[in-house]
């Protein structure tokens, strides 16, 4: 059986700043339920219900990916040294 893709494009990992849970924000969260949903990028943590703006989209997402790449590169550099 072929292995499913490990990182589907839709996966958007978010980290809850209140309870520390990491979760996939794609396809869930506050957006479908909010009367002002259009354009709203707030997500809800499945662990504690805390709502916060998505950090994986827009400029914040780009900055986050840039910082993560730098950190990953630093870890890899450290492990090969």
């Amino acid at each position: 059986m072929p292995a499913p893709s490990s990182t589907p494009a839709a996966v958007r990992l978010e980290h809850c700043p209140l309870c520390g849970v990491d979760f996939d924000a794609s396809g869930q969260g506050c957006r479908p339920s909010c009367p002002m949903a259009t354009g709203c990028h707030v997500v809800c943590c499945p662990g504690c219900g805390y709502s916060f703006p998505q950090e994986n989209t827009g400029l914040a997402g780009r900055l986050k990916r840039f910082l993560e790449e730098r950190r990953r590169a630093a870890i890899e550099k450290g492990s090969t040294a």
Binding site: P17, H41, V42, P53, Q54, E55, G58, A60
Partner: peptide, 10 residues
């Protein structure tokens, strides 16, 4: 910086 930027964008 990421959190602040995400909130400002929102």
């Amino acid at each position: 910086a990421v959190k602040t930027l995400a909130r400002i964008e929102w």
